[in-house]
Structure formats: C-alpha cells, structure tokens
C-alpha cells in the first residue's frame, strides 16, 4: 500500500515536470502566458504524509523546473511557499474536517476543490512574478502577469484534474 503511494507520486512528479518543461513552457499564448500545471503535484499530494518531506519534495520539484527553464530559484521559492501554506489553505477551503481519517479530496464538492487549487495557483504566481520582475516599479506588469497566467493555469489545472480524477485515494 505504501509503495503504491510512492510509485504514484514519483510518476506524477516526473510526468508533471516533463509536461511542464516540454509543453507548457513553450505555449507562449499572447506572447507571455505559459500556464504552470506542475502545481497539480501539490494539489494531489496525500494529506496525511510527513509535512517536512512534502516541503522538501516540493522544493526539489520547483528547483528542477528552475534548472530546465533557466530561472534559478524562482520556481523553487514559490513552490516551497505554497507547500508550507497548504495546511492553512486546506483548513480555509474544507474547514477542520480535512484532518479526519475519512477525508477524501474526491468527495468534497467541486466548488471547494476549485477554490483550493485556485488559492494554490494565485499564491504561487504572486510569489513567482514578484521574484521574476524583481522591482516594484513595474507593479502593473506584475499584476497583469499574475492575473493572466493564473487564469490560464487555473483553467488547465481544472481540466487536467477532472481528466485524471483521483477516485481511490
């Protein structure tokens, strides 16, 4: 049972990283919109697992994407931030009952799932674009990028998460 968890998560890690760098980083819709779908890894990651391990794995995922896209440190910083904030976000979306043994992501209402992934994406993209632009002179540029790319990521993540919906976990 435990080895199955590891296997699924390693597979997700590798596949999402590859899809991100080989497909999503090349979309360039309207010149700058590259949706980030690897956030789904954090969305799907089991809730009951060791939290420190989760933070480290998320950092590694961000770091690998950084190496591939030559943006050293930016993906890693934003991914590790949402990994740390995930319990708080889940408490906000699902109430306290997400900590119970019987809680399953697939069984909560659709709107709560969407709120959860949307919050992950918005926090991730806010950190990401502030670090990428790296000056508050271009505040409007940061805002434009956060809004446009968040929307694209959100649409793609919702589509993908319903395509590969988790039934048994």
């Amino acid at each position: 049972m435990a080895s199955k968890y590891y296997f699924i998560n390693i597979l997700r890690f590798v596949l999402l990283a590859l899809v991100q760098v080989l497909l999503c980083n090349k979309i360039g819709f309207l010149g700058f919109i590259n949706p980030m779908i690897y956030i789904l890894f954090l969305y799907w990651y089991p809730i009951k697992q060791n939290r420190a391990a989760f933070i480290i794995v998320s950092f590694l995922l961000g770091f690998i994407i950084d190496i591939f896209s030559d943006t050293l440190g930016i993906h890693a910083a934003s991914t590790v931030t949402i990994a740390y904030l995930r319990p708080a976000i889940m408490r906000f979306c699902f109430g306290v009952n997400y900590e119970f043994q019987s809680f399953k992501l697939a069984s909560v209402p659709r709107i709560q799932q969407i709120t959860y992934i949307a919050l992950l994406i918005i926090i991730h993209h806010t950190v990401f674009f502030i670090l990428e632009v790296f000056s508050f002179e271009n505040f409007l540029l940061i805002l434009k990028k956060i809004l446009a790319v968040s929307l694209a990521s959100l649409i793609l993540c919702i589509l993908l998460s319903s395509l590969f919906s988790v039934k048994k976990e």
Partner: peptide, 11 residues
C-alpha cells in the same frame, strides 16, 4: 529553503 531559493534568484 526559501532563503536558498531567494539567494539563488538574487544572485
């Protein structure tokens, strides 16, 4: 970890 990544970014 945040410190490491932000240090890399600034660099």
């Amino acid at each position: 970890l945040l410190f490491i990544s932000i240090a890399l970014t600034i660099r």
